[in-house]
Amino acid sequence: MHTIAELIIVFIILLDLALAVTGSLSVCIRLVAAQGVVAGLLPLLASSEGPASRALVFAVVIILLKGAIFPWLLMRARDKSGAHKDVEPLITYPASIMLCLGAFIASSWLGSRLPLPKTEVAWIVPASLATIFTGFMLITTRSKAITQVLGYLVIENGIYIFGLALFVEQPMMVELAILLDVFVAVFVMGIAIFHISREFDHIDTAELSELSDWRRGEYGK
């Protein structure tokens, strides 16, 4: 059972790497969805005895949300916004992948230093931290608004896995609360992106700086 759980952890990290190098928006959305689904499967495998029915229901809800509803919303936002179909990174892909690797090394070190309860599955803490970092990286180094939503989703995946490490029991309350937040966030972002694209014809966040009233030369006019 644990080997399978470890394999899933490895898979999650590989998904992080894939997110760092993927150039296509739709692939990115699918990767995030896949990560959510796989992470949702994890609690079923991490406990040593068979899954409880409560956990089962919970997993189904999560997989449904992250695997079907979010991707659908995001795909819709992507199509409606009429943006270019690639993620337009601000740094090169090799740099992204090296950052991701560096993040994993740093989180392995961090994971060994954090005073956490011992988990039975190896690397669960480093994987969660690395996933959170990958989310940050997506937010900070990609120029589109939609990739920022994706970044938040990846961070949520990371926090969820981290929760698994913290509470060997079901991290239900935490997860439910976060999930709710993220759901609202995705919803709001979806609407916002839609409207931004209607107003500006694209969803490049760099253009949002146009809205700033602190522009050089115009200040105090």
Binding site: I97, M98, G111, A122, W123
Partner: peptide
Amino acid sequence: VPYMLITAFAFSALALIFQMGR
């Protein structure tokens, strides 16, 4: 092509990190 090889490098590096973190 370098991206593919960097991916291979990342795989090897991950494997090594996993093994060292055990």
